[in-house]
Design a protein around this nucleic acid. Structure first.
Lengths: 195, 195
DNA sequence: GTGTGTGAACGACTTCACAGCC
DNA sequence: GGCTGTGAAGTCGTTCACACAC
């Protein structure tokens, strides 16, 4: 989050930014900003603030954004297709190297300069080319099976859009995005708001 | 999350579930389950566990899922369109009552039995029909402006897919889903993993 | 015996507040 | 005077452990 706003400031020619300024942008507190950043080092100058450009460079390094991570998307439905063409990914160095589906109607359908591939080829493809991250845009019932397979094939990071909890060994990182659950959270907020 | 798994258990004819069983399903701990549920009441029976069906009913009430919330989607790009047709929403009682865009090429394009509407009509439409939740699938630069407008028009809950922090008055609930940021979190995990 | 509900202990994260440097 | 970096204090959430109910 800090990186996003620092890049914005950097783009607008800002050379320096105080914890106060960053806090306002990010919707947090100055003390929080200072503690967070100090975890990784002493970047700021007392009386001045943080050097914007320098800090963006350091944060990119810390986040590992120096390299182009290779991503496969599993599930060529509405969400999967939207993700496959989402610009934000490539812009930030995430290369979509393949889209997979199990539905014969969808396999072979053109996608970019390539085509949607058969999910049965996924294991082989992961073994052949490097795949760093698997994005799952599939039904809940299929999620755990696919997770097991990509983990078995060597993938160490998963972004899961299936509305279910998935279980992985400790060395694998998972982030789950559950849109229906987010909406239910809003439903709760609306129901229990202090009118 | 508990509701999701309780429904599954209910569907499979399970009458009762222990905090231990729920914890395993949800990837948490038994103590956590008991504390969470006890916040809303004493649902369980000692020595038995929680009554599955009864608890799903109560949780739906608590979450406010009894009524059909009306949702508008702003932004008819890839993500917005995917969301507009996402079944999970309607299944859980969220009715998409309109899709809006500012791009003349997209306005009027068919969507369901209706069409994508001009974003300038949004304020008027919200005033005319009830709109409970606005889902934002638009570029970061447009997000705050649209937020201000829908809040002004009376919307009290926002699901934000724009990759930016948005600021709202205290009575408005916002959930932000930032997919690029999730991927960057995975990049960090991959970079700093204990190989 | 089994498994909840819950105060008490614990741990993690946030905020405070100020010394130190620009 | 302004603003960071950071121990100390405070707060919040999680885990423990056990009395109690079934």
């Amino acid at each position: 989050m800090y990186l996003r706003y620092l890049e914005e400031l950097d783009g607008s020619g800002q050379h320096t930014a105080s914890s106060d300024a960053l806090a306002t942008l990010c919707g947090t507190t100055p003390a929080q900003v200072r503690k967070d950043l100090s975890f990784f080092g002493s970047f700021g100058k007392r009386g001045l603030g943080y050097p914007v450009h320098e800090l963006t460079v350091r944060l990119r390094e810390i986040l590992g954004l120096g390299q182009a991570w290779q991503v496969v998307i599993v599930g060529a439905g509405k969400i999967g297709s939207a993700l496959a063409e989402y610009r934000g990914f490539r812009q930030r160095g995430f290369q979509v190297v393949g889209v997979y589906d199990k539905n014969p109607d969808k396999i072979g359908r053109p996608w970019g300069d390539a085509a949607v591939r058969d999910i049965t080829e996924l294991d082989h493809d992961i073994a052949t080319q490097r795949v760093d991250i698997a994005v799952l845009a599939i039904p809940a019932d299929d999620a755990q099976e696919i997770v097991d397979r990509v983990v078995q094939a060597g993938v160490r990071a998963i972004l899961n859009f299936a509305p279910t909890q998935v279980h992985v060994p400790a060395h694998v990182a998972v982030k789950t995005v559950n849109m229906a659950m987010e909406l239910e959270g809003l439903s709760f907020a609306l129901t229990n708001r202090a009118d």
